[in-house]
Design a protein around this nucleic acid. Structure first.
Lengths: 196, 196, 196, 196
DNA sequence: TATGAATGAGAATTCATTCAT
DNA sequence: GATGAATGAATTCTCATTCAT
């Protein structure tokens, strides 16, 4: 079992799932894109479902590591939050296929994921939740809001914007920068106009 | 062609799609839940795809009307926004199947919907966008943020929370009230702690 | 039961069968072309098969009567044969739908026809056979050939040319006249060049 | 993909199409007659239609080669024509299923074949047309008749007799010999009695 | 008589998965 | 390990026919 072959299959699956969605993706298309025989996929994955789940875990792991590494570079909690927002949205530019896959399949397979508990996704969300909680503890964020709910709300907003960016297919560095700062602004400062 | 039959089919489709998702739903299951023969569905809808799209349009129309009616009851723009948030989240309690269907299928069929332009969904979003824009014009909301982006962000946050509520299956009136006020608070006032 | 309605159905069936063939023809299309409800067809015909057979019998009857009337106008047996040839080929111009229907469906439903013995078709052939036999008796035609086989051969040749004319869709009076005289010539005089 | 499997499928299709006709033939019946799974047919043919067309082309090719080989054995043009007649009619004895298939499906699919241009059938006809034309050039056949029309007429006559023979199911070598010589006689010498 | 909505048997086709090579 | 031909269960959709009105 060449170790690179598993990754090649995952890479092909990512592209096909992103382009067609799980149900319209054909195993044979993934195989041919990976340059292997159909049957070979079953030496590395139990089933098409298993391939989806494995891919999901793999890419989420990668996202989590990426995020952690980046966040360690910042000290300030508020800066970390800005960074989280930016990193999430940047996926649209840097890894549009991962973005589309995560964005669409995560919903599509909500049912799937229900049984499967989806630990990786929760881990990803947890990073955000911990950020919020830390901010509250440090006295930088209001502490009258539940971190669990706040993090979900932020994730939802980011995910929707990421999907919008990916589907629009004309994301640019400027646009992502702009969106990230506006989103940070919304969440940090709120929409209300401070009456002078 | 009894007009009630079309609605009965849509109702059955809603339940089956919500429970299993479009691709795992069987036309024959929808038919038998509606108490009709398989073929009858094809007298009212061209195909399974058409059934999905029709259901989507139908329920979005209903959502839009419901929302419009409710919003007319409020005068104040801020109150309207609170109301929007509340109405959206309430779906989890009042129409959990609609909530699950909209929440999941809207993503699932992103591709689908891309060609199909999805006017109903845009209309729904537009209500929120117009609310934001009006708030800005009235001087109640900061006008340095794009309504289009703000509305997307809010929608994303609400949609994610709605999905969470539906999937958790233990939503209560209190919980929804609580979530709605917290979300309003986040978006209106922001997360930043005002330094005394 | 308005007597005209049965004929209207047959007329519509003729057009639809001629255009699409029996198996691709839809009963509902025939009904709507006849300006009646689908179910009404079943008040006049037992089934789609019965409609085909009835139509076939009806049009063959009509052909036979038409042929008999025309042939009575000639006295000479040879002239009658020329006339037969001409009348058959003329269908392409005068009743192209009948021509296409007879030409194609007669083969298509060979199986059909096998059980059903097809008396009308035999009657039509019999006219030709009797002509041949009479010609032999009168000493105008060679009597060393079986009339049954000769009539089949002539019918086959005419049928093939009729189909060719119908499918080519550019039959003219001149063309039919020309074909008829050439065919008569072939069968009457033969292809051999008389050595001087 | 064993090359023999494609031929086995064609062979089964031939038998089923000949017995039931294209529209009444079931793919699963063809598959089971070939001793394979239903799906396997679709590894070799795109669709049931494609199977029909492929079978038609394949068998016409075979017919054309068979005919060409046989005709090369004769030198005399008149003898070639006799041979053509005989070979065509012999199908009823030697390959009754091919005879029935060609005879019936060729008409049945006239519409089909119209778009599809049907080059193989034209090629088959062309052999006969060229024979006629050569006969005229050599001065053995009258040259006041169009080869295109003459060949169609002969083909039609032969085809009709072939169908008759196949459907009667009691063709014998003697019968075919007899028919062939009578048909040759008709076409070569004509029906007219030479007045002494 | 006439209607046409409803029926439901039936058929083609797809594609994840297997397994002999 | 790798292959890819073969499998066959599963599913959508069609359309002749019926029957309550």
């Amino acid at each position: 079992m060449a170790p690179g072959k598993r990754e090649r299959i995952l890479e092909s699956a990512l592209r096909v799932f992103a382009r067609k969605g799980f149900y319209n993706a054909k195993v044979s298309e993934i195989a041919s894109m990976a340059g292997i025989a159909d049957g070979t996929i079953y030496l590395y994955f139990k089933s098409k479902d298993d391939l989806l789940i494995s891919l999901f875990e793999d890419r989420m792991d990668w996202l989590i590591r990426r995020l952690s590494t980046e966040l360690e570079k910042c000290d300030d909690i508020i800066e970390k939050l800005h960074r989280y927002v930016f990193i999430h949205l940047s996926l649209a530019l840097e890894y549009p296929e991962v973005a589309e896959f995560i964005t669409v399949e995560l919903r599509q397979s909500a049912k799937f994921v229900r049984e499967y508990a989806n630990p990786k996704f929760n881990e990803y969300l947890k990073i955000l939740r911990n950020l919020i909680a830390s901010g509250q503890e440090e006295g930088r964020l209001r502490d009258d809001l539940e971190p669990r709910l706040v993090s979900r709300a932020i994730f939802g907003a980011l995910d929707e914007l990421l999907l919008t960016a990916v589907l629009s297919q004309r994301a640019s560095t400027e646009m992502i920068d702009d969106w990230a700062s506006q989103v940070s602004c919304i969440f940090f400062d709120g929409l209300a106009k401070i009456q002078p």
